[in-house]
């Protein structure tokens, strides 16, 4: 009887906590939607900002964020996945492997502002890319690289070893086994890593602060060497250092809502992609 009581209490607490979590999330979303929805209009999404950012739209920030997301993924995804493959499929358990893993974890723990500083020093100044989408994408890419490496590694680890062995037993090489068996099966979970990192890329302010983000630039970027506005930084500016903070408050909520919706859309579409992949390669 005692056992049953403690069981009921424990799961009661777990249930309350998980509902609490969902509640908080719903509260945040509700807050942003209620405050932001009145700012949203077709003009808001398609116009340049005007009147010291108290009216007009946020188009350059949306485009800028999309560019940064795309650029950083193009850079980080292949490198991260290939590194993950190397770590999990090729490297035998050794000091080198442990060292590489430790370093990857450390990299993931570095504050994003430090990445920003490093990106500025390397890409903006040393490599002379200037404040540009290229420099920003590379910096963001560096920041999410460890996430992608780790999730790739974990994804590949979940592929049953019996399938690798079966492939080898048929005379397949390591490379063939990785690309025909292991990677396709691990892909859904690799995509999870991609989703996580896209979310992070779209929301980070610190790394783009010194490498790409413009305070106010009412035009669309034309090349990867252009500066651009970006949603999170724009939000930061609107809230803390606009020309008229009070007047631009609705704009700030609108921007936040757009950012959240964008992340949601990306997550959803990536999830769809993931589901499609995992249907193809479902294991038992």
């Amino acid at each position: 009887m005692n056992k049953k009581v403690s069981e009921a209490i424990a799961f009661g607490i777990f249930r309350v906590l998980s509902f609490l979590l969902v509640g908080v999330l719903a509260l945040i979303l509700l807050f942003i939607i209620v405050r932001g929805v009145e700012a949203i209009s077709w003009d808001f999404l398609t116009k340049m900002p005007s009147d010291g950012m108290t009216s007009g739209g946020i188009l350059p920030a949306i485009v800028g964020t999309l560019c940064l997301m795309f650029g950083s993924i193009v850079f980080a995804f292949p490198i991260g996945v290939l590194s993950g493959i190397y770590l999990n499929e090729y490297l035998k358990e050794s000091k080198l492997k442990r060292f590489l893993r430790l370093m990857t974890n450390n990299l993931a723990g570095i504050p994003s502002i430090v990445f920003g500083l490093f990106g500025m020093a390397l890409f903006v100044n040393k490599l002379n890319f200037g404040d540009s989408i290229l420099a920003g994408s590379l910096t963001l890419g560096l920041m999410v690289l460890p996430v992608i490496i780790r999730t790739t590694e974990e994804a590949l680890k979940m592929v049953p070893n019996s399938l690798r062995v079966a492939s080898y037993a048929l005379g397949a090489t390591r490379l063939q086994t990785v690309f025909r068996i292991v990677l396709p099966i691990g892909m859904p979970n690799v995509l999870t890593g991609l989703i996580l990192s896209m979310g992070r890329v779209s929301g980070e302010t610190a790394p783009i602060l010194f490498t790409v983000a413009a305070y106010f630039l009412p035009k669309l970027p034309t090349s990867i060497f252009d500066q651009t506005m970006a949603l999170p930084y724009h939000l930061y500016v609107l809230v803390t250092s606009g020309t008229n903070i009070e007047a631009s408050r609705p704009m700030a909520y609108g921007t936040a809502l757009v950012l959240v919706i964008m992340v949601l859309i990306f997550n959803l579409s990536a999830n769809l992609l993931r589901r499609k992949f995992s249907k193809k390669v479902k294991l038992k």
Partner: peptide, 11 residues
């Protein structure tokens, strides 16, 4: 050729 203990068809 080799056949294993647990059936291990590719997905």
């Amino acid at each position: 050729g080799m056949v294993f203990q647990k059936p291990n068809p590719f997905p």
